[in-house]
Nucleic acid binder design. Sequence first.
DNA 1: ATGGCTTCATAGTGAAGA
Length: 258
Amino acid sequence: MKITAMKIATWNVNSLKVRLPQVLEWLASNQPDALCLQETKLEDANFPFAEINAAGYQVLFSGQKTYNGVAILSKNSATEVCAGIPGFPDEQKRVLAATLDGVRIVCVYIPNGQSLDSDKYPYKLRWLAALAGWLKEELRQYPRLALLGDFNIAPEDRDMYDPKGWEGQVLCSPPERAALQQIEGLGLKDSFRLFEQAEETYSWWDYRMNAFRRKRGLRIDLILLSEALAHSCVSCAIDKTTRALERPSDHAPVITEF
DNA sequence: ATGGCTTCATAGTGAAGA
């Protein structure tokens, strides 16, 4: 039986309208089999599918005006498309799942939470609980599953530039990390940590205060793989070159091959 | 210092991101 290698990636583009030229350039250079996008910030009627199709990629999208919005770009066509978490009514467009080349791709834009005393924080925790419940069923149905996107959670202190300064705050608070561990406990592995990685490798840097130049970032964009995929995973890397471009997204793409 | 920067919706500023 022939096993075809697959390269998948995730990138929070912070407006696909602004970042479309960078996305097209990145697809041409990196040739992933699938690229999951978050924060497209576009209504479906305005999604630039023609430009992406012309670049050799098919598109699935679930968007809204101004905020959120997710998409899956892929070389081959996907099936069994699902937008949102079944049984969890949510007007915010944050989830898109599809089956591609025998792999269940789950693209997520997990809520930010804003701060521990914000209404958005309990929403984030409810959202994560719903995601975990749904993923348990998905994994039963699709043993070859990849969960990728902007998690808005730094898994460990080594994923932050200043863990002491961030301690207890949103993006690293114990309940958020516990929710992530519950999801990993379903049998999903952080592909980045399957390999030796340089210290201070992050996926997001604040636009302010020269954070990127000063290496003040967080690793909050993740690609989690089910056991079946983790076994054949050969690499995971963060492409921080995009963060140095003109008008960059504040997030960098994460790429995993298996 | 609750600032700093970027995007979007707007036509002044304000919300939101992380």
